[in-house]
């Protein structure tokens, strides 16, 4: 059964040895040259499970991987019961939202501390389980890095997701994320990153165009 059609992949809900699993299929993209398409799909199929595995090691919940088929660019993983944070954020009280966002920030902080960059931090890629756990999914664009730049971009994406999708509480939401982040990584890094994010936001604007 088709669970979701993402931009990159189609996700199917299936039974696999008596378990409910998600089969993430990276189908070929007709717009890309086959050669480029294959290399992107297989690269991501190999890397996503590695990052998910490391994420667990870092204490950040992510789906358990059962099977990886690089040839077909398929990944079979645990099905996570629950709601996308995107769907439920507006149903919370201000305090509840602050707590959840701060918790998300702690998880991001843990990922970064362990050298993991998620690569697509949006509230659709975080699932709130009935037990109140947050599970991170979609590591397809992730990488291993401890550089300030990579961490800054990761958090910038989170901030952007709030601004584009949760504009009403973008400010409080992202501030709470940074609070939680700061709690696990320390004030100094969090402050450096806030500066970095500002710098990233300034780039790509007209100003940075070659004016030579």
């Amino acid at each position: 059964m088709l669970l979701k059609k993402g931009a990159e992949a189609s996700l199917f809900l299936e039974q696999w040895h008596g378990r409910k699993v998600v089969m993430k299929k990276r189908l070929p993209k007709k717009y890309r040259l086959p050669q480029l398409d294959e290399s992107i799909r297989s690269y991501r199929t190999v890397h996503e499970p590695q990052l998910m595995h490391q994420s667990k090691e870092a204490g950040v919940p992510s789906p358990t991987i059962f099977l990886v088929d690089v040839e077909e660019a398929n990944i079979v993983m645990e099905f996570i019961e629950g709601d996308q944070v995107k769907q439920i954020l507006h149903t919370l009280t201000t305090e509840g939202r602050r707590k959840l966002c701060s918790y998300i920030g702690m998880l991001i902080g843990n990922l970064h501390k362990h050298g993991i960059i998620h690569g697509d931090l949006t509230t659709s890629n975080m699932i709130l389980t009935p037990h109140g756990k947050i599970v991170f999914v979609d590591f397809g664009l992730g990488e291993f890095s401890t550089e300030l730049e990579a961490r800054g971009v990761d958090l910038h994406l989170m901030k952007r997701a709030f601004q584009s999708t949760h504009y009403k509480y973008a400010k409080e939401g992202f501030e709470a994320v940074m609070e939680g982040y700061s709690d696990v990584t320390g004030k100094k890094l969090a402050e450096d990153l806030l500066k970095k994010i500002r710098e990233i936001e300034e780039r790509g604007r007209y100003v940075s165009r070659e004016e030579g």
């Binding site: 971009v153 584009s164 790509g204």
Partner: peptide
């Protein structure tokens, strides 16, 4: 709303 943009050059 801006969903995406360049991180460096246009």
């Amino acid at each position: 709303r801006i969903f995406g943009e360049t991180l460096d050059i246009a």
